[in-house]
Design a protein around this nucleic acid. Sequence first.
DNA 1: CATGAATGAGTGTTCATTCAT
DNA 2: GATGAATGAACACTCATTCAT
Lengths: 225, 225, 225, 225
Amino acid sequence: MGAAKRKRVPRAVREQQMMDAAVRTFARCGYRAASMDEIAERAGVSKPLVYLYLHSKEDLFGAVVRRESAALVAAVTAAVEPGAAADRQLWSGLAGFFAHTAAHPDGWAVLHQQARAQGEPFVVEVAAMRAEIVRFVTGLIGAAAKEAGCAGELADREAAGLAHALVGAAESLAEWVNAPTAEGTSSAVGAAPDRPTAEEAAGTLMNFAWTGLDRRMRGARWAPA
Amino acid sequence: MGAAKRKRVPRAVREQQMMDAAVRTFARCGYRAASMDEIAERAGVSKPLVYLYLHSKEDLFGAVVRRESAALVAAVTAAVEPGAAADRQLWSGLAGFFAHTAAHPDGWAVLHQQARAQGEPFVVEVAAMRAEIVRFVTGLIGAAAKEAGCAGELADREAAGLAHALVGAAESLAEWVNAPTAEGTSSAVGAAPDRPTAEEAAGTLMNFAWTGLDRRMRGARWAPA
Amino acid sequence: MGAAKRKRVPRAVREQQMMDAAVRTFARCGYRAASMDEIAERAGVSKPLVYLYLHSKEDLFGAVVRRESAALVAAVTAAVEPGAAADRQLWSGLAGFFAHTAAHPDGWAVLHQQARAQGEPFVVEVAAMRAEIVRFVTGLIGAAAKEAGCAGELADREAAGLAHALVGAAESLAEWVNAPTAEGTSSAVGAAPDRPTAEEAAGTLMNFAWTGLDRRMRGARWAPA
Amino acid sequence: MGAAKRKRVPRAVREQQMMDAAVRTFARCGYRAASMDEIAERAGVSKPLVYLYLHSKEDLFGAVVRRESAALVAAVTAAVEPGAAADRQLWSGLAGFFAHTAAHPDGWAVLHQQARAQGEPFVVEVAAMRAEIVRFVTGLIGAAAKEAGCAGELADREAAGLAHALVGAAESLAEWVNAPTAEGTSSAVGAAPDRPTAEEAAGTLMNFAWTGLDRRMRGARWAPA
DNA sequence: CATGAATGAGTGTTCATTCAT
DNA sequence: GATGAATGAACACTCATTCAT
């Protein structure tokens, strides 16, 4: 009696609620500044329950990082059309990336800003996820080169470098595009009219990157002199 | 005996020593996890002296961010040849950027990872510095468009977007190139034994970006269909 | 084993224990010199618990001041016989005051010496309590004047001044009476071996003050010439 | 050169300047909260000089207490007319007391609020000074009793109690009278019109106390029944 | 004589974490 | 299963105090 009796909720659901609260809190305060008290309160449970289910702050953060990493990779993977041409695949993957980060800014902040700022265990985890994406992009670039009929022209190492650059460009663009206004909900009914959609952002980047890649794959080169 | 008892050192010098220690500590532990005790010890002074000169942890971090920001901007600025062609300027600026981040990884980590993960005062400060660089790159892209004789073709807003993408690509490449070991998990290509020089990294990026920009400025466009 | 490990005690009780410890510590060391460590130890709990319940040193001191103020006012109020004559009421109130300060010397020290030596928030609080008592005494003086049939003779402002003087006299007497040892330096009379009871002290003060008030109310005046 | 060369000043003068600064600082912040840095700065000298002359914070506070004690006693002593009648002497002494405390509120605050709130060494010192004044008043009361021709009627112990009460009443009245407006300068050109002068305050107190004493000395008594 | 440089020791405060109920 | 009660360990910050110059 009294303050709205807590409903009995299965463990899996409670864990998700806790992680939801943790994502928000970690994104807004940073890993260290976020307190377990605040997370528990935001999740609407008592602190010992958080420890019972998720064992420690470090474990909780790790779980959050893994969940958000998986969600991002899943979103990008689901966005690409498997059989399409390499450029089309790249474009749709980028669109998926922009859409997901726009829809889940807190998750993206945890991955991109918080996890990378903490020590060993987390940087590695998020780096692995990023490496997976880079590898995927590297593959697309290689495939495109093959499609263009000039396989040997582009060394594996250079392709990897280009993929890294492209992924970095996408991240930077995502931050720029999502920055000014605050946490939009997913449905996006009231989005500002001048904020580009995910597809537009992907188009802008392709416009810049793909043409460069395309010419590079055909043997063009820039030299300082 | 032992650790040179209480050497008298002028204030300006001590402040630099403290900030050096702070850069290392903040880069390795993050802002919150770094303790003033550790910073003081690494600087070879007592904690009260740090407070006497730099007033608070927040002030110290701010001073560090400003010093490293200024150093990075100075390095990039010093690297470009003022009268040269736009592409040449871009290349040399990129080379300066890669060289500086490779030479000062801790400073770069503080700017790129730590300061952006903390709240209001610092994100703004480092964002301002980044904006300055983006503006410079935007200017170069505009100049290049003019040199190429196709001024009206490229909207200001698109040029800014391209600049953002390019800076992001450079940051990403810098992290890849300067990484202690490769982040590959499975088989992968792995890190090359010979880390590329700053000029090489700048070349790789120009090779990818400039050719794309060049074609884009001449009206080429990529479209999803 | 040893000091009763972690006994579970309800919050309300623990808070009183903490405040008891705080009263002793603040009275003996002063507000600033008292350390939260010492208070916690004397209360038999750990420091974080003190902070969990009482939030800060300032809050703790404020809570102590309020509790002791209320206790003193309650003791004085409870001592007076509501229907009695004004002089009788005054006498019994004084007796209550002397009895309470003698029984709770630490509480009295916190109110009279420590709280008044600290800044804004506390001086005001204790001044308000004192003003309440002064107001009560002022009322009694006025009532006595009416009883004596000479209402207009005594201006309100003079009555307030007399009340202030009387309260000050009582405070001073209380300190003298409750002093651990006499403060005489040279020969002096020294402390009497038998400390007067509260009723005796009240009598002494009435003997001095009431006769003066009585004559003053009948129009007597002292003039320097 | 540069910032107004400090004039060479004899030690005795410098010490007085330091103690002036200390009185202000101790009165406003309290003993513990006052920092030697602030005192030195307010005195316009460097901190080591304060230590050279006054050895420690405790010594400095002690010196201040002694100086202000002596000044108060001297002011009261100088105010009484040696040969006059006892009541006249008491009145003029009270007037001296009110005048001095009004003119030196910081000194009075240090004696009455700060010194009494600190531990052993200072409470004793200020208590001794107070005892001296109480003894003087006790003597006056005895003399008055003798003048009134009823020596045996008033026991020494009761006279001492009355003196304590009278001194307490004076202190309380002084605080009431000096409280509302802030630190007036000594000359008192712009004093509020409704703040009583020292002579008026002394008159009020005599009006109340002396008539009571007078009757008491003639054998009158108040009794609870 | 006077001071900038320097520190040991301590303060209030917070947090992740556990147990008894 | 869920929670109020409780703590060990650490951290940012301050201050009285002393040398070397």
